[in-house]
Amino acid sequence: DYEAFERFIRQRGAQYEWSAPLEKNEIEIDESQIQIEAIESLDALRPFGPGFEMPVFKISKPAIKNLYDFQNARHRRYTLQSGVCCMRFNQPRSEISKSVNRIQCFEGELQISEYRGRKQASFMIDKIVYD
């Protein structure tokens, strides 16, 4: 029923603020938008693949509360003021000594982590842009 589908999309779309992507495949988000329900809603856009790539999400000026290095500083977990966990796996050695105050943005993807039956929304960092 195309008409019902169109009404549904228009009704749900009116609830969101839309803005043009910064680049072809990049969407800027606020850390408050990193929630399980929002990440699960991305499943409606699947399957991702050639010609229909998963968007890259960008958090500008992340408010970093603390960070934790593990496995001999190969990986780093940033916790934002909102409580959102941002993970950087296999960080380059050149990033270890850089100040978090110089971070302009995180680029990566949204993910739901599950541990002992507890789900948590997280941000997987692919790239960190410094000033």
Rank of each mutant, 00 (worst) to 15 (best):
G49F: 14
E6C: 04
E37D: 10
C85I: 15
T79Y: 02
P21I: 13
Q11D: 09
V84A: 05
E109T: 15
I125H: 01
R93I: 12
Q111F: 06
S82P: 12
I39N: 04
L42E: 08
F89H: 09
S122R: 15
Y68M: 08
R77D: 06
A38C: 04
P92C: 06
Y78V: 11
I103T: 09
E107K: 13
R93L: 13
E3Y: 04
E53Y: 03
E109S: 15
R116V: 00
Q111T: 08
V84D: 06
S99K: 12
S97H: 08
T79E: 14
L42H: 06
F89M: 15
P55A: 14
C105S: 12
E28R: 09
E114M: 01
I112P: 14
R88S: 08
I64K: 09
A44C: 10
D1R: 04
F106Y: 14
K61W: 08
K58L: 05
Y78D: 08
I103A: 11
M87Q: 06
E3G: 04
N101F: 04
S19E: 13
R102K: 07
I29E: 09
G117V: 02
D1V: 06
I96H: 11
E107A: 01
E23C: 02
F106W: 10
R46M: 14
G117T: 06
F70A: 10
S41T: 13
K24L: 13
I9M: 02
F70L: 15
N90I: 01
I39A: 08
N101H: 08
E28C: 01
F106R: 13
N66L: 07
Q35E: 15
D43E: 13
E114C: 00
Q104E: 11
R7M: 01
H75L: 06
V56W: 09
N101T: 10
K65P: 00
N25D: 15
D69Q: 11
K61N: 15
I125D: 01
L67P: 01
L22K: 11
Y130I: 01
S82Q: 07
Q11E: 11
V129C: 00
Y78Q: 12
V100N: 15
I112A: 11
C86S: 08
E107G: 01
K24T: 12
G117K: 02
D30L: 04
M124Q: 06
K98E: 10
S122G: 05
D69W: 14
N25T: 05
S94N: 08
S122K: 10
K127Q: 06
